[in-house]
Amino acid sequence: MSIQEHYRSRAKELLSSGTVKMVIGYGTGSTPDRRRPVFITSPDETDRLVLDKACRTNLSGYLLREGLLSDQKQVAVFFNLDGVRSLNILAAESQLETAQVLVLGFRIEGEEVTALQGERAADFKSLIAAAKEQRKSQPPHELQEKLEAMTPKERFSFWEAEFSRCIKCYACRQACPMCWCRRCVVDNNQPQWVNTSSHTLGNLEWNLLRAFHLAGRCVECGNCSRACPADIPLHLLNRRMSDEVQGSFDHYPGMDEAQEPVLASFRKDDPETFIL
């Protein structure tokens, strides 16, 4: 049985037994290489579920739709490992409880999609720990390497050029599972700290501010870059921040639901390299 068939029948089972009230998964998209989220509530509809190598979107953000989890019932969600990590962060930040979320785990490697063992966020602890170690030895992204080699001035012009395409549609914010604030700081106009105009300064302010708000929280799922209609490589900013928190504080976001946010907690042996 293919993994898609396996999970379709598992979804049917979960819905017909009443274990979950909804399955959030992937359906066919507008083009063959795109997938669209589907929200299945009836066992008869599970055939709409698709699972293949195009299923890259992190679906955890949909769990925060106001009222979805307030009835204490369970929801099953298709997650790769990044998705499970973001689930852990949402729980650590008190936005949901993992007991309400059943994980249908999968991993994409090249052409192959395999199932991950476990159904609760906590079941993936050792896999996440392994991913943390693996990240340390991962070679940097090609473009990232190019950016690191640039002088600060060159790098600034690079990003200035990239951000000049930004149209302030906030699709990155909409797609990001970590952008769950009831009111985004950019929507606060008393006072208007962040310039909302779509000019160089406003665009820089917005994108850098978002990168800072994601420091130590981003699981590098790539939702932001995929959502960006201007194809700005936003994930590189977040990746750079992740390198920083992992290198300085050995912090890998989403290890478990008890993890403290790296910027609001401290250990006595934290490096103090920023104090001159």
């Binding site: 009111r183 606060n188 403290e260 946010p261």
Partner: peptide
């Protein structure tokens, strides 16, 4: 209270 999301980052900080 209208805009607070209850993430408790402030509690930790």
């Amino acid at each position: 209270e209208a805009t607070c999301s209850g993430c408790w980052g402030c509690v930790l900080a």
